[in-house]
Write a protein that binds this DNA or RNA. Sequence first.
RNA 1: UGUCCCAUGGUGUAAUGGUAGCACACCUGAUUUUGGUUCAGCUUGCCUAGGUUCGAAUCCUGGUGGGACAACCA
Length: 571
Amino acid sequence: MVEGNNQNTEEVKKSLNFIEVIVEKDLAEGKNNGKIQTRFPPEPNGYLHIGHAKAICMDFGIAQKYGGVCNLRFDDTNPVKEDVEYVDSIMEDIQWLGYQWGNVYYASDYFQQLWDFAVRLIKDGKAYIDEQSAEEIAKQKGTPTEPGKHSPFRDRPIEESLSLFEKMNTGEIAEGAMVLRAKIDMAASNMHFRDPIIYRVINHPHHRTGTIWKAYPMYDFAHGESDYFEGVTHSICTLEFVVHRPLYDWFIDELKTQRPEDGEYRPHQYEFNRLGLTYTVMSKRKLLQLVQEGLVRGWDDPRMPTICGYRRRGYTPTSIHNFIDKIGYTKYDGTIDVALLEHSIREDLNAKAKRVSAVLDPVKLILTNYPEGQVEMMEAINNPEDESMGSHEIAFSRELFIEREDFMEDAPKKFFRMTPGQEVRLKNAYIVKCTGCKKDENGNISEIYAEYDPATRSGMPESDRKVKGTLHWVSVEHSIPAEVRLYDRLFMVENPGDEKDKDFRELLNPDSLKILTNCRVEKELENVKVLDSFQFQRLGYFNVDPDTTPSKLVFNRTVPLKDSWSKIANK
RNA sequence: UGUCCCAUGGUGUAAUGGUAGCACACCUGAUUUUGGUUCAGCUUGCCUAGGUUCGAAUCCUGGUGGGACAACCA
């Protein structure tokens, strides 16, 4: 490279994803008068999951980056599946991720306009009422390799279709008795062009419009038109809608013939790849099944890949953003290793989380040469990554708890922790040497004995002595009980992507939740707030669960420290 | 015997006709009062066969492989 080009090389140039490239090109060409408008269009039939987070970051991110607006639109065209409960949770999760929509719209806001458009299509001879059963229609549709056949109702008089369409909406027509179909091409290679159904009868109250409507538009008919009514310029969705795009464009063409005043304006659909994560499922249908069958504790169970599940588990909005940023947007359907998600939250929490002491599986350690009744306050750094977070004090005494797995009577060479004759450091306190242990009748360790070296208190010159291991501990007298919930990353024991037809429930890991009730934590944690995150020394990152009551502290493990996972998980 | 989309280390993603780079994962070493963090380093890749070109991951053609489409779901 030529000298003097340092400026460019110093800048961290982040490449654009392919949608951003399109947007920048549209902007450069002055399309839609330079307007950028997107929308996030969930159906309110379930809670948002991490895959939606990817779409949210795209839809809101594009608007934010290019000075446009992103609206929230509930795609509520099927009252049977939808509920206000979901509307509320969706709004909460989007805001938790840090985004704010321009407006909240509902597809149901456009029911009248859609109806009028459908009537016009009938009048133009481009739609007709079909009275066949679902089975008959499916049969005539053909297959991807064989053309379909015309419905016997395809060429019925326009007036007849018009009056039947009216009846579809008055309650006179039973569900399934008739549908409105667009008249396009039964031989089209794209199945969606084979006279798609655009209206059907549903006798179920709608969560917003009640019982006003009986005839409801289908997705393909409602989506593009809703985009159009709102002024969406870039309608971004996932790859499975690629085959719908020609139909999306077809309806918009039809709409535009009646709206010359809109000029060049037209929404375009673009598609990116869905997010697949190892060891979990992402489809709303399956997540709903987990909830309904009681296989998890709810939509916000920390094992769920839902946004609220991750929130409860202790994931931060920042970590989710960083994760989405890392995985990118392409047209290739891959599966992302959950390790990348875990890395993102460790990265964030490492910088932010306060370090505190806890013992998950306590065993008593008695310092035989430490004066009975003596208590010393030890200084504990709150976060070695961030000096400004300061420090707090932790009480030290003759009787302590340490982690059961930190002691071994006959230890292999590589064991750096407590074993008879070996010196270890008690973090923030003294170097101690194990002298032995006591066992109960079953051979289980009940007490461990050690002698401390008074000259090695942290901060004193002797404390510089090299010892291999450093243990976390809490004082028996000065610690408080807590409950800890360990959630395994391997929610599914196999990656469900590998097992095509297998019932995913068979893959559920029965040990995906482990509840530890004997844990002890330092007093510092007495007045912590719900969802606050901590690093329990060497045990990983934890947060305070919303289930916590004044009498019982409950922690969720967000994610273990990097290497200790297998050691702890295998226990 | 269809239409459409896709193919870069183990995983995900850059490079848009000019030295295949980044992150995760893995492994090694150094530092460390967390077996964490940090730092340094190592290993691993353009599906295939042709064509265009001085030059192809990139453009073209044929293969191969994967995915989507046959809901009165979205």
